[in-house]
């Protein structure tokens, strides 16, 4: 009885307030889409890191001839210097480094020639123009700072380079995009809260007489407020479901069907990630509605 009655009130409220309810649905839809997009961007960054950091190495470039670096004062790195660096790697860095191999000038030249068979920007280079290096595979790519600290400044080591640095611009771009999406989401969420507040207020005013009678005949506070609460929550949840659906469509058709086919060597977010984000959006919508209701209802439907 109670349940049915409350539901009836909710739907009559929604019907009476259609325009506002549609506005709430749309605003929550847009704001939560931005929230979801930000979350998916972060998920994408995580995926790329997982994927690419396994491939990248730390390069310890050894002193070539004629380097100006103070650690290269003795000229080209000697066998002894290289051995002592390897020693350090094997002892001090044994827990950070999982694999080490030496790339000689000749190997470096072969790799270079493979990539640029016609020479680089018109110059013909020889193996002597190349630089020997130690290639380190780290157990955890995030440990680069430790490795760099230990190895930089040793005799025979010109510079320690993290190949991850190559990806930094991309990640920075994605992070900026995340911030942008999150910022827009913030603004839209504020708009959503204000709109839900207004909608509930409007609904409360349009049902002032009912509410007054309810108060007089002794209906409980919860019973009086529940229809308004549910109205706001229902509209917000509907918006969050639309946001989830929109994100799903975007991932399905833009990422899975299109990006993945044109650029197929990158790991992309998938529909699974959307399903992981969607419940959060619904929870946010409910929280949003609850927050707005809390501020409005006490003022407009107090006993």
């Amino acid at each position: 009885m109670r349940f049915q009655f409350v539901l009836g009130e909710v739907f009559s409220g929604l019907r009476r307030n259609t325009t506002m309810v549609v506005a709430v649905v749309l605003v929550t839809f847009v704001s939560l889409t931005f929230v979801g997009a930000a979350a998916l961007l972060q998920a994408q960054i995580g995926k790329l890191k997982d994927d690419w950091y396994d491939l990248v190495e730390v390069s310890v470039f050894l002193c070539p001839e004629g380097s100006v670096s103070p650690t290269c004062a003795t000229g080209e790195a000697t066998e002894d210097q290289i051995d002592s660096v390897r020693q350090v790697i094997d002892t001090e860095l044994s827990s950070q480094v999982s694999k080490v191999y030496f790339e000689s000038k000749q190997q470096a030249f072969e790799a270079f020639s493979e990539r640029y068979p016609d020479g680089y920007q018109g110059t013909q280079l020889t193996a002597d123009d190349m630089q020997a290096s130690l290639r380190l595979k780290l157990t955890d790519a995030e440990q680069f700072a430790v490795v760099s600290d230990v190895l930089s400044g040793r005799d025979g080591v010109e510079i320690v380079e993290d190949q991850r640095a190559v990806f930094e611009p991309l990640f920075r771009t994605l992070n900026v995009a995340t911030l942008l999406a999150a910022g827009l989401a913030g603004v839209m969420l504020l708009a959503a809260v204000l709109l839900i507040t207004t909608t509930i207020r409007l609904s409360a005013v349009s049902r002032r007489k009912e509410t007054e009678i309810m108060r007089l005949v002794g209906a409980s506070n919860l019973f009086i407020q529940l229809p308004f609460l549910l109205e706001g929550a229902l509209a917000a949840v509907l918006g969050s479901l639309l946001a989830g659906g929109g994100l799903w469509l975007a991932v399905r058709f833009m990422v899975s069907d299109w990006l993945e086919r044109s650029v197929d060597w990158v790991a992309y977010v998938s529909e699974v990630d959307v399903f992981r984000v969607a419940p959060l959006l619904v929870i946010m919508a409910v929280a949003l509605a609850a927050l707005s209701s809390f501020f409005t209802l006490n003022r407009y439907t107090r006993i």
Binding site: M1, R2, K209, I213, M214, V217, G218, S220, F223, I224
Partner: peptide, 20 residues
Amino acid sequence: RLLQNKTVHENVAFALQVIG
């Protein structure tokens, strides 16, 4: 103070409905 969008019966019933 009757609710104009409800019949007489509904108006009276309303007082009981809202207290469950």
